[in-house]
């Protein structure tokens, strides 16, 4: 096994009596490189090899632009809905005691455990014009299945646990004394929640939003069944990648994937900055 360099000064690792550093780090790096890094750099290499003109032509193609707008737009709306309802769900689970609380709590993780294709066909059946919910909504003139609204519904399903599970532990750590102090100082319950509790939860809520949003942008399985997949109208970006691949148009598939990765990266960066800011402000 490796021995720590005896010299002082810059050191790759701190000395330790525990063996196995070289073996475990070496294996981990090799596995990571083979499975993740090489394939992902292949994608970047391929899109770089496209050339600017080709890349720009694909990126500004109406169908590509619409698909990206739909993916990012629906994911944004769904994440926003989940922020509202996910926070309420987390609050009820943390603060209220009711029979079956544990079961409800466990159920929140269903979207993590249920295969996306199963969720997709179940939601489609539910919201189809003759489905249990679709038939209730149809007389109101609301069409969910095979429209962008259906995509939002699927992404709400997928993203819910991300918000609840990010916000819940922070809520559990809230010191009740803070609320008591606010109340003693004359704040009513609404003021306490809005001015004292929510600011403290803001970083967690932003993180939950980011996770739900990022997952929604890339989501495929649960969406394609309910979306209707009309080009320009309800076609998500991951589906367009699949379609381009099936046409053997590797260049277009690669370019769209690269744009998605870049946009997601920028979004995460922005959200990271917002988080740092809100932590500083309310931390």
């Amino acid at each position: 096994m490796t021995t720590a360099p005896a010299k002082a000064g810059w050191r790759f690792r701190q000395p330790s009596v525990i063996p196995g550093f070289g073996l475990t780090l070496g294996f981990s790096l090799a596995y990571l490189t083979l499975i993740i890094l090489i394939p992902l750099s292949g994608l970047i290499w391929r899109s770089a090899a496209l050339g600017w003109a080709d890349f720009w032509a694909i990126a500004t193609d109406r169908r590509t632009v619409n698909a990206l707008e739909i993916s990012f737009g629906t994911a944004f709306i769904a994440a926003a809905v989940n922020v509202v309802f996910g926070t309420i769900v987390a609050w009820v689970l943390v603060r209220y005691n009711f029979p079956g609380r544990r079961i409800v709590d466990a159920m929140v993780d269903l979207p993590f455990a249920l295969p996306t294709a199963v969720a997709g066909i179940a939601l489609t059946t539910l919201y189809a014009p003759n489905g249990w919910l679709g038939s209730l909504l149809a007389p109101l003139g609301i069409k969910v299945a095979y429209t962008p609204l259906g995509i939002v519904i699927a992404l709400i399903f997928i993203g819910l646990p991300f918000v609840v599970r990010t916000v819940q532990p922070i809520m559990e750590e809230i010191d009740k004394e803070v609320e008591e102090v606010a109340a003693t100082l004359g704040a009513n319950r609404f003021q306490t929640i809005a001015r004292v509790l929510l600011p403290g939860l803001a970083p967690a809520i932003v993180t939950g939003f980011a996770l739900a949003f990022a997952r929604g942008v890339g989501e495929y399985g649960s969406v394609i069944f309910i979306a209707g997949n009309l080009p320009y109208k309800s076609e998500i970006a991951p589906l367009l990648i699949v379609i381009r691949l099936e046409e053997y148009n590797y260049a277009a598939a690669t370019a769209i994937a690269a744009i998605m990765l870049a946009l997601s990266f920028v979004m995460l960066l922005v959200i990271n900055l917002v988080q740092t800011w809100s932590r500083k402000r309310y931390g």
Partner: peptide, 23 residues
């Protein structure tokens, strides 16, 4: 390294498949 390990969670499943097709 810890960040790199989490990378697959932030990649669309379709892209996870695509990278192997490109390879």
């Amino acid at each position: 390294l810890t960040t790199l390990i989490d990378l697959p969670f932030s990649v669309s499943p379709v892209i996870s498949g695509l990278v192997y097709v490109l390879l």
